[in-house]
Nucleic acid binder design. Structure first.
Lengths: 139, 139
DNA sequence: CAGAATCCCTAATGATACTG
DNA sequence: CAGTATCATTAGGGATTCTG
């Protein structure tokens, strides 16, 4: 959607990143996957190599059995994680990143880098906001 | 970044992306902001230039007045968006990306690019999964 | 071990009405 | 126009119990 300003000499509406080209297309799918509470943490752990169910649960601190199950299932469904069942007894299952999943770690790293680079800015902005808007509660 | 899987000589878990270095640190803050339902769409719209409240609401299809308010407030609090009130009557307010917010659009674009690049893979993986796991409901 | 099945609670979002 | 205030709904997530 072109939002060309009607301004006389106003410089064309800048879109430095070319984001207008794909407003929603597909981003939601990815955000729905990595935007939840645990997926990124699981992916990061799996970036270190294959893990069994209990290993993952111990590594990802605070995750419940239920949420770990749901998280790995969804990652598996999206083809980001490969689940392998070994017919031993008791059962043994391991999870590992697929090619797509491994590629996703690059994106996660970009996110982590950006977060670290701007962490101080954001923290400061929040403090400033909370100081100047004491009554306001938007969390 | 090489993903060479030696297998034999690498007892140590490989971390091709260096993700282990910052497991959680700061990523959550960013994901909590861009992981919600509307923030990315608002940011993308603002990447096209300053917008007034109603303009934003019309541009971001489906967003309620309440959620738009909450979304821009949170973005403002994090220093990603600048809110300017003009003391006219009726009131006039515009929103624009700050420096940090504009920088964030780079990350959003990386996300969009990745999403587009892997959209087919993911869609196919899902279909395959749903076909082989008919009863399973994990959404 | 690796889950499946329940129950319960809270946060997130939506709908509607009202205001400076 | 640009919100605020309420109420209703739903999705996400946690705790617990049970099983192959």
């Amino acid at each position: 959607m072109s939002l060309t300003h009607t301004g006389v000499t106003t410089p064309a509406p800048l879109d430095p990143c070319g984001l207008e080209e794909h407003p929603d297309c597909g981003i939601r799918d990815v955000l729905d996957r990595i935007g939840d509470k645990w997926s990124v943490l699981v992916i990061v752990e799996l970036a270190g190599g294959p893990r069994r169910f209990r290993e993952l649960q111990r590594a990802v601190e605070g995750i419940s059995q239920r949420m770990l199950t749901l998280t790995v299932r969804r990652l598996e469904r999206d083809g980001l994680v490969l689940r392998t069942v070994y017919p031993t007894v008791p059962a043994q299952v391991d999870y590992r990143l697929t090619g797509t999943g491994a590629d996703l770690t690059h994106l996660v790293k970009a996110l982590a880098d950006w977060s670290l680079a701007h962490r101080a800015d954001i923290a400061e902005a929040r403090q400033s906001y909370d100081r100047t808007h004491p009554d306001h509660d938007i969390h």
